[in-house]
Simulated scan of single mutants.
Amino acid sequence: MENQMDNQYLTIAMDVGEMLLKYGAETSRIEDTIRRICTAYGASRVDVFSITVNIETTMHMGYDTYTQNRRIRSSKMDTERLSALNQLSRDICEKKPSLMTVENQLKVIEAMPNYSYSFQMASYALISGSFCLFFGGTLQDMIAASIIGALLKPVETCVQRYSQNKLFIALAWSLAGGLLNALFLYIGIGQHYDLIAIGNIMILIPGLAFTNGLRDLFVGDSITGLIHLVEAIIVAICIALGFVFVQSFF
């Protein structure tokens, strides 16, 4: 019975770590959180290894050893859920609540509402139009970029239903953006293809992933840092290829 409880402590710690990774936390925070939770429940030693898609933990409880591995298929940045998970991990370390209480809190965090779809479309429009104007676009370019940005949100949602591959999503998204860009210029809305495209590109440009990669390298997480950097560079190339491909024809 005691062995079963010890394994459940590790399961709870891994559940928290998996959600942290799923919602965009850095690997150093994930490893530290899992280590602290296991230690709070009595572990004498905890060895954690995490990269962008995998977490592996070995927990030592006296002479007993428990190991679990989690594979994360997809991730996204969600600062609200990360904040809630950080607070939960602090509460676990300070108060040592029951496993059932922690599981219920994780379900509450998972069920937290997202921003409304209309708000996300408006955000895409605002980002596209603002950056288009910032980089020298005209008022017509800004209007075109804003409308295209709003239309790209449904395109992104549709693509994500069939694939969670970031490279495929970026390429399909940029091809759709390039086609819409060419269509708007053809019907007379907008004047400069490149400036409208810049505004749309800024929606999906992996700046955060690139920054996280550099940060991981500086704190010593070399493998994770390199993965983030390579992924960000390839995604950026896929985004550029889509717009350039369409521009070469139209």
Rank of each mutant, 00 (worst) to 15 (best):
M1A: 10
Y9L: 09
Y9M: 11
L10H: 04
A13S: 13
A13F: 10
V16Y: 10
G17W: 06
E18L: 02
E18M: 02
L20S: 07
A25K: 03
E26C: 00
T27Y: 00
R29E: 06
R29A: 05
I30D: 05
I30P: 03
E31F: 04
I34D: 05
R35F: 15
C38K: 09
T39H: 08
Y41H: 09
Y41M: 07
G42H: 04
S44P: 00
R45W: 07
D47H: 03
D47A: 02
I51P: 01
N54Y: 02
I55C: 09
E56N: 04
T57F: 08
M59W: 12
M61R: 02
Y63H: 14
D64N: 12
T67R: 06
T67D: 05
N69V: 12
N69Y: 08
R70T: 05
R71E: 11
I72Q: 04
R73L: 12
S75V: 15
T79N: 08
E80Q: 15
S83V: 08
L85W: 10
Q87P: 07
L88C: 11
D91E: 06
E94C: 07
E94D: 08
N104W: 05
L106T: 04
L106A: 05
M112Y: 08
M112F: 06
N114Q: 09
S118D: 05
S118F: 05
Q120C: 08
M121T: 00
M121I: 01
A125G: 14
A125M: 14
L126P: 15
L126K: 12
L126V: 15
I127G: 12
I127V: 11
S130L: 11
F131D: 06
F131W: 06
L133P: 13
F134V: 15
G136E: 10
G137C: 13
T138K: 04
T138C: 09
D141V: 15
D141I: 14
I143H: 01
I147Q: 04
I148H: 13
I148C: 14
A150E: 11
C158N: 15
Y162P: 09
K166P: 15
I169M: 12
G177K: 04
A182K: 02
L183E: 07
F184T: 04
F184Q: 05
L185T: 13
L185V: 07
Y186L: 10
I187Q: 09
G190V: 07
H192L: 00
L195D: 03
I196N: 02
I198N: 01
N200L: 08
M202Q: 13
I205L: 02
R215F: 10
R215L: 15
F218L: 13
F218A: 14
S222P: 09
I223D: 09
I223K: 09
H228F: 01
L229I: 06
L229V: 04
V230P: 04
I233D: 03
I233V: 11
I233R: 07
I234E: 13
I239K: 09
I239S: 10
L241T: 12
L241F: 11
F243N: 00
F243H: 00
F245N: 03
Q247C: 06
